[in-house]
């Protein structure tokens, strides 16, 4: 979701006017007769047709993937999948659904909390070289492949700390992976709050903590929420960091930090798709279907948040 429409204060209105000008001008050029009956006009037409074709190449895979999973999962979908645990290579996905929810909640608390705090620090105090150092190391962390996180989580937490495959190991690994996203969006959102807001608060003699809590953070809320949604989306869809940290279990997740392996939906997709039994493959598709439903829900929520925030923003 690098492209969540989350930037409430991007200069959208200006670019609309710009586009209008561009279109008017292209029409003018057309009137002058350059466009339709010269080689140059012909070249332009070919080029734009190709660009429409590439647009089609972007949309088609999305439709195909979602369509394939829905068509494989929905016709045989039974609601018992939601209410029974996985047994061997069959059964339902109740333990995986519960596991994914627990992981999402945990990441929400850990990465959400740490990310918001670090975003506050970066936007309020870190205007020097040290701040830039913190920022770039956070971006470097975001660029590390997820399997490296998984491997390090396994070696450090599961083996050296003797935590075993556990909720704690999975949560810490995954949270560290997504903290940069929350931190970055929080920082950007806080920076975009007009300074007049907090200055007004100071003029009223409010304490700095009160200003931050009730004025600045409140105005930056949509951006913060978007960052958290991205974190949740990653937590829902990742597999590699969890395989060797959270492990797997066919029971409902135990709410303990150590020695508490748990199942999650992406594990079901990854493990059951190449099993010989039809029930297992079906389970794999069911899990993929639930994951896609989750992703679409998250996208819709983030869009609602953004449009709600734009309704109240001043520079609409």
């Amino acid at each position: 979701m690098s492209e969540l429409p989350n930037n409430p204060s991007s200069p959208q209105s200006q670019s609309d006017a710009d586009r209008l000008n561009f279109e008017t001008l292209s029409k003018l050029v057309e009137v002058q007769g350059i466009k339709s009956n010269t080689t140059r006009g012909f070249k332009a037409r070919i080029a734009w047709s190709l660009s429409y074709l590439t647009l089609l190449l972007v949309i088609t895979p999305a439709v195909l993937i979602v369509g394939h999973v829905v068509l494989q999962a929905l016709p045989h979908f039974q609601f018992s999948v939601l209410t029974s645990n996985t047994t061997g290579l069959g059964g339902g996905l109740k333990n995986e659904i519960a596991g994914t929810l627990v992981i999402v909640l945990g990441v929400l608390v850990i990465a959400g909390g740490l990310g918001i705090l670090s975003g506050i620090y970066l936007s309020n105090y870190a205007k020097n070289k040290f701040g830039n150092f913190l920022r770039s190391s956070s971006e470097v962390l975001a660029g590390i492949p997820s399997i490296v996180f998984g491997y390090v989580g396994y070696i450090a937490l599961v083996v050296h700390f003797h935590w075993g495959f556990s909720l704690g190991a999975g949560l810490i690994t995954l949270s560290l992976m997504v903290v940069p996203y929350v931190s970055k969006t929080t920082e950007v959102a806080l920076r975009q709050v007009p300074s007049g807001y907090s200055e007004g608060g100071e003029a009223l003699g409010l304490s700095e903590g009160y200003i931050l809590r009730r004025i600045t953070l409140k105005s930056a809320l949509p951006g913060v929420v978007t960052g958290i949604i991205v974190a949740v989306a990653i937590a829902t869809g990742e597999t590699a960091p969890l395989l060797y940290t959270a492990g797997y279990s066919q029971n409902l997740p135990k709410l303990a930090v150590t020695h508490s392996p748990l199942g999650y939906l992406t594990y079901a997709v990854w493990t059951f798709y190449n099993q010989p039994s039809k029930a297992a493959v079906q389970l794999s598709y069911d899990a993929a279907f639930l994951l896609i439903v989750g992703v679409v829900l998250l996208i819709v929520i983030s869009r609602i948040v953004v449009s709600a925030s734009q309704k109240h923003s001043e520079n609409r």
């Binding site: 979701m1 690098s2 492209e3 969540l4 972007v58 949309i59 895979p61 999305a62 439709v63 993937i65 979602v66 999973v69 989306a233 829902t236 869809g237 990742e238 597999t239 992406t266 997709v269 990854w270 993929a288 994951l291 896609i292 992703v295 679409v296 998250l298 996208i299």
Partner: peptide, 12 residues
Amino acid sequence: FLEILTGIPSVV
């Protein structure tokens, strides 16, 4: 559609 493409888990 771009958001869907980014959001789809890599296992899918």
